[in-house]
């Protein structure tokens, strides 16, 4: 049967317009079934008015991206979290920011 979707690597280009990190290399956790896996393994339906990335386990929507002429809409409701690999972090800076936010 002819496949009706792409894999999550199809998200790399469109998301590179928004994020400095490569989100297709991130690990996502599905908000519906809890399946954890690389964004690159999501099923991306692109023959649509936007990109719809679905969980390979339960087929629920994990991520949606619509690119208009002068804005993008990104919906991540279907993802509990994204683990985005980053290098060279400064943990002290994160802790300081977090403390300030919690105290406000």
């Amino acid at each position: 049967m002819q496949t009706d979707h792409l894999d999550g690597n199809a998200l790399a280009g469109p998301l590179a317009e928004i994020f400095t990190a490569d989100v297709s290399a991130a690990v996502s956790r599905c908000a519906t079934c809890g399946l954890t896996g690389p964004v690159a393994a999501l099923r991306v339906y692109d023959r649509a008015p936007g990109l719809v990335a679905r969980c390979p386990g339960c087929e629920e929507v994990v991520l949606r991206l619509v690119r208009g002429p002068d804005a993008a809409w990104l919906d991540l409701r279907g993802a509990v979290s994204l683990r985005i690999p980053l290098g060279g972090a400064n943990p002290g800076a994160v802790a300081t920011d977090g403390g300030a936010a919690g105290g406000g």
Binding site: G50, V66, G68, P69, A71, W73
Partner: peptide
């Protein structure tokens, strides 16, 4: 589905209501 992801709430093609803006 699409109306919560940037597409127009009504979508009249003659008024070219494609996106929310």
């Amino acid at each position: 589905f699409w109306e919560t992801a940037g597409y127009h709430n009504y979508g009249d093609p003659w008024r070219e209501q494609r996106y929310a803006d």
